[in-house]
Amino acid sequence: MFVNQFLFLGAILFCIGVYGVVARKNAVLMLMSIEIILNSVNINLLTFALRNGSTDGHVFALYIIAVAAAEVGVGLGLVLLVYRNKKTISIDDLSEMRG
């Protein structure tokens, strides 16, 4: 197994996630794209852990999973709040920050 096959998988998933974040209008879908990005990072971390023969990457992968769980919790809370106030979760309709 090459190091690069995993790293390329991670890179491809990362780019797909980025595309999702940019292209999606629905807030829930945006969060899902962010999850894909986080997973691609985890794959990278674990690959390097295996390559370097250390367990540090595992620790950080676990931490990222925990942070992602927290992020989803808060993110969906925010989405719910937005929905309750605006009756929509379309990101495009939330343009109060327009300059």
Binding site: I43, A49, A61, L62, I65
Partner: peptide
Amino acid sequence: QYILLAAEFVAVTQVLVY
């Protein structure tokens, strides 16, 4: 993939949490 990368605990956590 995590299992392929010899990280079974992370894999299990992935299944449980995610």
